[in-house]
Design a protein around this nucleic acid. Sequence first.
RNA 1: GGAGCUGUAGCUCAGCUUGGUUAGAGCGCCUGCCUGUCACGCAGGAGGUCGCGGGUUCGAGCCCCGUCAGCUCCGCCA
Length: 674
Amino acid sequence: MPRKTHVPGRRAYSPCSANFRSRTRLSAISSASSAESWSTEPLQGFISHINSSYSGFQFSTTKGFFNVMSIAGYSAESLSNRFRSHYCGLLNPSFEQTEVRLGGWVHRIRDHGGLIFIDLRDHTGICQLVIQPEREELFGKAEQLHAESVICVRGTVVRRSPATVNPKLASGEIEVVLSDISIESNAQPLPFPVADELPTSEELRLKYRFIDLRREKIHQNIIFRSRISGAIRRYLEEKGFIEIQTPILTSSSPEGARDFLVPSRLHPGKFYALPQAPQQFKQLLMVSGFPRYFQIAPCFRDEDARADRSPGEFYQLDMEMAFIEQDDLFAILEGLMEHLVGSMSQKRITQVPFPRISFRDVMNRFGSDKPDLRIPLEMQDVTKLFVNSGFKVFASNTKEGCCVKALVLKGRGNESRLFYDKAEKRARELGSAGLAYIQFKDEGPKGPVVKFMSEDELSALKAELSLETGDVVFFAAGKWEPTCKIMGGMRIYFGDLFELDRDELSFCWIVDFPMFEYNEEAKKVDFSHNPFSMPQGEMDALDTMNPLDILAYQYDIVCNGIELSSGAIRNHKPEIMYKAFGIAGYPKEEVDKRFGHMIDAFKLGAPPHGGIAPGLDRLVMILRDEQNIREVIAFPMNQSAQDLMMSAPSEVLASQLKELCLKIDLPPAKEEKK
RNA sequence: GGAGCUGUAGCUCAGCUUGGUUAGAGCGCCUGCCUGUCACGCAGGAGGUCGCGGGUUCGAGCCCCGUCAGCUCCGCCA
């Protein structure tokens, strides 16, 4: 494609500082993109109504026009046309006496009889419009307006008298005295208010999501999400990543979560599946020689919802890199997170590089593979103190595979009985048989298990755990992993006693996950995570070690108790793969049958590679302090995976089913109980 | 599949513990008044199958059973 010389658009900067800054930034981006995409074709229809008297630009190309439109979504760029010359929230005294055209939604109306105020809201904020008594012709129009009507107005920016300045509004030093109103859309009374951000039932919010999205908080969340996506793209492209889209219609795989299936018309009786993640595609892209891949990838899993798990679909920042080791990937992710947090939030990361904790350690210390490191509590192992104890409950759990765990709360040894009873109730909810504890009071140790312990054991405990008078220690004993998890649950329960810093982001890497685990039900060794992960020590480890002791290059990234992603350095060597599957009890033939296309690819020239896929929705949730994932998704489904606005899922026409050779065979309706 | 919480006016909620006049409040809506408000103010008005079904009772918004819906959790999430 021949490139023509770039002709810059006409510019007329306002002296207003805020607007000036944003336009300056915009012009740099626009120039760059226009230079890339210049074409000589004029776009007469679209361009003719773009009036450049206030805005900075006049565009003459399709691409230039749309590039800037997309940027205008979050910058202060003001497109000037018959509807609007300025944005409400950006007006300030520097526009005094300027004739402006504004378009937006009626946020509130205050009708004083002889004088009407309208708060007009657009994407940028609110400004106050005034209808003066001498403008009688406007009163009739204004009096019929409801909240949330869309109007376009003309008027003059005037400075408010000092007594009437509204410090709550960014535009509170000015108001716009109207000369004309045009009602584009007079709204009927709404099912719930936009201006008062009152709590509203989730059902209504979802059904009328387009109204809910007008509310400032969620509106800003969606803008923020867009900006995060943009920042991710710019950062990763600069680091040599290539954005590649992978199929949405693909094949079903029996592993993992349930698939969403899509019937095939051309192949009756066969189905596509929506991808649970582009896992295989991204590994194949490495085999294709792309050094670094990324995609903000939709992932579909037919699983039940949670507060941090949207049912059906979610987005991952999917990444994969060739010729890397675990540390290389960690450095890239740490750089990206540092960049995003630093440039887009007020939060700070506790420690960079992020701490790395082995799976064994994190379970022993925090009782979870997704610890909230902000909670200043850590479990301790006291198994060895009770090997010969007279307290059978503990002594019987000192053998191999079992443990006794202690959790100390400093200065909580003199709480009311209720405090300890509630803690025990919580422990039972978590699956514990009970919750032993010892209060170290002025008069000595107290608690239900003290009588089973010798003086020596109590003083050994005191020394081992550095206990002081006024402290309390809780115990759990049993098999290693469940016991750790129960105490981990208690650690979170007691975490409420501490005020956590909401602006702190305590990232960490959990590393050294075991490659295999023993499946008690099937009485065999199983993969504990992704079978495609590379075992640490590679073939040598598989040949010589006890399978249950082999670790994998498998890792999780965790922030404030939320798992953002798993990832792994992949196993790209077919012989190691066959060996690993063999240990898990899969013969070569079966591996070929189930994963043949992957293994074939790895036989045809595969580089070492690895990757990760942080959940974008969860990342945005954390950065925006949201407790529910729906708050960062424009059109989410409800808990039972229905779209209440679009009425999905829905029945389809019989003719559609017939074309797909499908018959509906519902289970019989439940018998009425008598 | 299981458990918990919630369901009363268009919206947000009170009333339910201890069944008993005509089921209330704020916001919104309608009518009228109001020239400096910014959650404007003032006066008046309309608006209810108390989620739905059954039961107990002389009588149920309230008690019991079932059911539906929303949320949260467990299971599930290679």
